[in-house]
């Protein structure tokens, strides 16, 4: 255990006049892996964007602290520097801007000026199996869904946050990519004491990541918390017992890219 703590208390947030998070309480310790599961529309993606400070979401109440630092008053880029990373469900294409440019500017802003960005990026690319040809290409442009998720994981490896929120990182991934991503994250939890909040729809990721704690999010609240057995139970029974039919249509978050692969498709299908 690294002694770091990400603490979410009474978090309420709305998007477009609709209150999505209705009081979320959650605490993750460094080195732990927590999974947040829940039916569509339960607020899983909203939670990830509220934590990172997406401009489309408004916090109504509650607090989020990382080692006691109030994240909600910080701009997004300072939340990263405070130690929080979000691997996005739909990584955004940024034409003309390379991964190296972004990592370099991030390091400059964090005062990590003596670290060899190019070498770190190349090393992480090899580790995650991300083709080095992509490194000089514009960010996420023309990458497949799986490559985008490897790219997210690569950036996690380079930036070395204390906590990582993984928003459906398993969607759009083939088996090999899923394994590579999960192995890299697992290594970070062991080597660097990374704390993980994995938001997921599927158990598949959890088989790879082996979470310590499972939370069920329903209608904007954590309604159940338990050990790994809870995931197994959910797999069998669905979310009906937790106040949500699991075929409910998810409200479309602002960040949703209409051209992204179907978020609800089974990637194994």
């Amino acid at each position: 255990m690294s002694g770091h703590v990400l603490r979410i208390e009474g978090l309420r947030a709305k998007v477009a006049d609709r209150e999505i998070l209705q009081g979320v309480d959650l605490e993750v310790q460094g080195g732990q892996v927590h999974a947040v599961m829940g039916p569509n529309g339960s607020g899983k993606s909203t939670l990830s964007h509220v934590l990172m400070g997406h401009p489309g979401y408004e916090v109504l109440a509650g607090s989020v602290t990382l080692d006691g630092v109030d994240l909600l008053t910080l701009p997004t880029w300072k939340r990263l520097q405070a130690g929080l990373f979000l691997a996005m469900q739909y990584p955004i294409e940024v034409p003309g801007v390379s991964l190296e440019d972004v990592m370099t500017e991030s390091f400059v802003a964090a005062g990590r000026v003596n670290e060899p960005v190019r070498e770190l990026v190349a090393a992480e690319a090899r580790r995650i199996g991300f083709d080095e040809r992509f490194l000089s290409r514009p960010m996420n442009v023309d990458l497949s869904g799986g490559e985008k998720k490897r790219n997210e994981t690569l950036q996690l490896g380079v930036l070395k946050p204390r906590f990582a929120v993984l928003d459906e990182i398993d969607s759009g991934l083939d088996v090999d990519a899923l394994r590579a991503v999960a192995r890299r994250i697992e290594a970070a939890t062991n080597e660097d004491g990374l704390g993980v909040l994995a938001i997921t729809h599927y158990n598949r990721l959890l088989h790879e990541l082996k979470p310590d704690v499972i939370h069920v999010l329903s209608k904007g609240r954590i309604v159940a918390t338990g050990g790994p057995d809870l995931a197994t139970e959910l797999e069998r029974t669905g979310y009906a017992a937790y106040g949500g039919p699991d075929d409910q249509t998810e409200s479309r978050p602002l960040a949703q890219n209409p051209f992204a692969p179907d978020p609800f498709a089974d990637p194994l299908a």
Partner: peptide
Amino acid sequence: EEQRYYLEARGVPS
């Protein structure tokens, strides 16, 4: 805005 958010989420100032 999404492009800006993405880069900010990687620690790049606005």
